[in-house]
Design a protein around this nucleic acid. Structure first.
Lengths: 127, 127
DNA sequence: CTGAATCCTGTCCGATACTG
DNA sequence: CAGTATCGGACAGGATTCAG
């Protein structure tokens, strides 16, 4: 066993696989893209409209990375007008529940987080 | 109703609360810090040793942000040698399961992801 | 419509040095 | 031990332009 990645919850090696994979899918655009696509496949510009503030470049790069990792599928549709369909893969669908759990956590606990921020800022602003 | 954040799964406003909160906690160091602290509170340098590759600065900033958001607690301990204890808060503990779900997903599906990468690279390298 | 390519600017972050 | 302060390089990513 020449290669020990030390990835056991109490220690994280630099080449820990789950760590590397996490970085590939745990950015904010990925989360939003997956959430939108969960409601059904759609096209590039429709996706761009729904993700307020994303640039063409970032969207393009993020889609490409998700496609490469097998999370989403890209299909060219020969129609009028021509389009490209993005949709979740079966593998990608299995990743969705964990992300939605975080999404729901954020919605449920934002008040507690805001209270913590106020308390923190108060403590750290006194002379 | 002057303020509509459009944060309903098919559309993401720039000021969507869950989106803003996600960015605060979904970076790679935060995930690893929370995972380590889940095994019990510990000190700064011990944390630094366990998170291979993290710089003092990044660790310090990430800890501060997590503390501000109420995820972890920082306690100065008057002992010999003097130390600082970091540990999860009750609020932070509720955030852990969703993150561990992603962590477990990464461990379980890395083979499928690797296969997808190989297929993708193969398709995109042909003349 | 769906991107790719270029430029360019802000920001992250590691290295280093210093403080209590 | 537990950080803060400062600098500088690398890189992300927005605006714009061009192509298929």
């Amino acid at each position: 066993m020449p290669h020990d990645t030390h990835c056991n919850g109490s220690r994280f090696s630099v080449d820990c696989p789950s760590r590397l994979l996490f970085d590939q899918v745990a950015d904010k655009w990925s989360m939003m893209i997956m959430t939108v696509l969960n409601g059904g496949g759609t096209r590039f510009n429709d996706l761009k409209r729904r993700l307020e503030g994303v640039s063409q470049k970032s969207l393009s790069m993020t889609l490409k990375r998700l496609e490469r990792n097998g999370i989403i599928a890209r299909t060219v549709v020969a129609s009028t007008p021509p389009g490209v369909l993005y949709e979740m893969t079966p593998l990608g669908l299995t990743l969705l529940p964990p992300f939605q759990a975080i999404y729901l956590w954020a919605n449920s606990n934002m008040d507690a987080v805001e209270a913590a921020r106020v308390a923190y800022d108060k403590d750290h602003s006194e002379s």
